[in-house]
């Protein structure tokens, strides 16, 4: 099955880090998935350790049938993105993934300082719902088979995402960038 990220990272994506970074990690994740919740601080730590060498991208892959709050949580982060606070919402949602009911999402929106009326309006926008669905479809096309799934420099990563292993893998990539081609 395919191992290639489709489509490649583009202007529709939420990107944390510099365009000049030599390592690009894309996560397909689900805000209610406990494994994604466990991966969240690991990615944070690796972002800190690799600094400007790393660019991190998050795409939505909500498994709605088993995680009933995952889809709306994803839409909520997209709505925050319209107020330039995608990553603030992404973080607070993962940090509170055990309670993702609508009322909790509103509280989180308040905490990170979103305009509440606009947020309330935006989470019902068809456009944002379609954005989340498109992310999901791109995951299917890219061969995502569960969450979290990581793509590193455009290729599916099947290794361990425990911090030590993932960090070492990324570090090695950086050490010999020519081997990547």
């Amino acid at each position: 099955m395919t191992t290639q990220l489709i489509p490649l990272v583009n202007s529709n994506d939420h990107v944390s880090g510099e365009g000049s970074a030599v390592i690009e990690v894309v996560e397909y994740g689900d805000y209610q998935c406990p494994y994604c919740g466990r991966a969240y601080p690991i990615i944070k730590s690796i972002q800190e350790r690799l600094g400007p060498q790393l660019r991190f991208v998050f795409r939505n892959f909500p498994l709605s049938k088993i995680h009933p709050h995952a889809f709306l949580a994803a839409v909520a982060t997209e709505a925050a993105g319209l107020q330039d606070k995608f990553w603030e919402m992404h973080d607070i949602v993962f940090e509170n993934q055990h309670s993702l009911e609508l009322s909790s999402l509103y509280q989180m929106a308040d905490i990170i300082g979103l305009d509440r009326e606009r947020f309330s309006n935006d989470i019902q926008q068809q456009e944002l719902i379609e954005k989340v669905e498109k992310d999901f479809e791109s995951g299917i096309r890219s061969g995502v088979n569960g969450t979290p799934t990581f793509f590193i420099n455009g290729r599916k990563y099947d290794g361990s995402w425990e911090e030590a292993e993932l960090y070492q893998y990324l570090k090695n990539l950086h050490a010999k960038p020519s081997m990547e081609e």
Binding site: M1, T2, I140, R141, V144, G146
Partner: peptide, 16 residues
């Protein structure tokens, strides 16, 4: 048709 290794979830891109 597609036969996946027993411990690998083949995803859905091939089906689609």
């Amino acid at each position: 048709n597609y036969l996946s290794p027993i411990d690998v979830n083949p995803g859905a891109d091939g089906i689609l």
